[in-house]
Amino acid sequence: MLDRERLGNASFRGASRSRKGFFRKALLAASIFALALPFWALSEKPTPAKPAEDLPPGAMQAKATTACLACHEARIIVQQRLSKAAWTKEVDKMAKWGAAVDANDRDALIDYLSTNFGPDRPAYEPPRTAVEKSGSERGAAKTSSKLKKQSATDPVSTHLTDSTAALPYAMSPN
């Protein structure tokens, strides 16, 4: 994702630097851009973020899925970056709280989790919720304009265009 972004930006920057041969460069940039994009980005329906994550492949994937995902989704696991000692505590706590972990599988499950989600792994990048649909957006806009009427809430306008605003120290809390 990041690579694609960098490549795309670099291409456009390259194209804008020189007016000479602009169209040729633009065409080249567009081709690189198109090649760099996976097919879904050009289709009408981009791949949506998955509501629930999956656990990574491995010998314990199926058993971990059964044991852990009955109560919560994989994202709660996938975002952790823990040592083996910390994973051991978590697995034992969850087994006590009802996770179906066979005693024979405990050590393998701890290994699976600490191998995949150890402290040295890069941070998990969480998705966002969707932009709220128009109906709700109208509601939100209404709420926020109402709030603005009640009290100026934009920090920039509140703080920087109001010349009567005293220094914070001079303002007594009320």
């Binding site: 981009p46 791949t47 989704e73 994202r75 966002r128 709220e132």
Partner: peptide
């Protein structure tokens, strides 16, 4: 922010999903 379509959760707008369930 829109490279990947977000997860739709009614009443929530562009929030960071730490957990869905």
């Amino acid at each position: 922010l829109l490279q990947e379509q977000g997860i739709e959760i009614p009443g929530e707008d562009r929030m960071i999903v730490r957990s869905f369930r």
